[in-house]
Write a protein that binds this DNA or RNA. Structure first.
Lengths: 227, 227
DNA sequence: ACCTGAACACCGTTCAAGT
DNA sequence: ACCTGAACACCGTTCAAGT
């Protein structure tokens, strides 16, 4: 029913980095990582696939732009409060929500260091909260690194799992089901079998947040006798 | 100088799942994830690329076999002691060492749930250590889940970074370098700029291990008044 | 039963040609 | 300056044919 579909030539300013990233996000959210091709992008944008090369010099550059876009999404509306625990929790939860809200995009891009402005804002926000918690200098930097590797690592890993779930029909949810030939050799796994089947990953994430906050609370501070 | 290279037909039993996985590991370790193709595998094994389909029905199945192989590598020589802290540290460090020793393989496969025997052994080993620490039932299972998502997530994220490093010529090591247009808007990041450049990722991993062990030490136990 | 080789539908990327 | 379309070298995967 679509009439002049492949007829008209796309007008001059029809393409832009933003429009391409939007289309990429649409494809990733809708059909997963394998849908992110020049062909599909071109179709989505009603443009010849190679036209995209005018705005991105490679597929990897598109993914870097997606990473920047995810950084922006994550921080949207974030405002620091006067409570460092609340701020760090907020920032950690934002990473998780971005990963679960856009799993394929996060799986493809979340490991990419963009060195973009939004990433810088995130760095500054975490450091600010750690400063408010009383951490200084190398202690603050170490805890910043721990924050990033913990919450980005776990969130990204979760995103990968979620986006793989689409391709391979997993048995059920998150559950690993083991069928050992000789269960007595793995008594602890055998005993925990039932409980292992049902765990909410976001509850585990909550544990990580609590662990991290407790650790920050106990970190050495200026004037401490601990080194 | 290699004489009869493409001449002879490969003899009957020349191929096997193990030989294919070995060749895949060689390619991944040597040249990164993009080297893992049927074409390269065939060349490495002196066999027609499609011959591999007799032993694996798809590329994803090869990656699953690599995941199983990594599980095996990780646990090689592991023996539980009577000290749960040492055991959990050992298991966590093994995940890290597998990731850093085989970054491309880990990046490709570490997120895959194999449900294989080695994975089951790992599950049992972690649960056993947590049992020795005094954790029971859902508390033990929760801490098992936290262990896996933390150390596998962080290790796999590190592997992805290491294996990307090969493709994109990063500025230097692990360092993110930000050039904000207006540094005063990001005072904490600006102040930490120098320290941010040099952080040993394995030191950060050590922090995660300590955080986790501390948390296990404080977890509720049977007979506790805490719930 | 296992390996070969042609074929298929798809990739990302290049480049000269159109407007 | 930006979009098009043909072309290139490569993918994973299939399938009939050899041994």
């Amino acid at each position: 029913m679509v009439t002049q579909e492949r007829t008209a030539r796309a007008r001059r300013g029809s393409l832009s980095q933003d429009r391409i990233v939007d289309a990429a996000m649409r494809l990733l959210d809708g059909e997963g990582e394998s849908a992110l091709t020049f062909s599909r992008l071109g179709h989505e944008l009603r443009v010849t696939p190679t036209a995209i090369y005018r705005h991105f010099s490679s597929r990897d550059e598109i993914i870097a732009a997606i990473a920047d876009h995810l950084d922006e999404l994550s921080l949207e509306g974030y405002e620091p409060t006067d409570e460092w625990r609340a701020d760090l929790t907020d920032l950690a939860v934002r990473a998780w929500e971005t990963a679960t809200g856009h799993p394929a995009a996060a799986a493809a891009a979340m490991f990419t260091v963009t060195s973009g402005i939004h990433e810088l804002r995130a760095v500054d926000s975490v450091l600010r909260a750690l400063h408010a918690a009383g951490l200084r200098d190398d202690v603050a930097v170490s805890y910043y690194r721990a924050f990033v590797s913990l919450f980005l690592g776990v969130s990204a890993a979760h995103a990968v799992r979620l986006s793989q779930q689409g391709r391979t029909l997993q048995t059920a949810e998150w559950t690993q089901v083991y069928r050992p030939t000789d269960p007595t050799r793995y008594p602890y796994a055998e005993a925990a079998k039932e409980q292992l089947r049902f765990t909410d990953p976001s509850e585990v994430y909550r544990m990580h947040i609590d662990m991290y906050l407790d650790s920050v609370a106990q970190a050495p501070r200026a004037g401490d006798d601990r080194v």
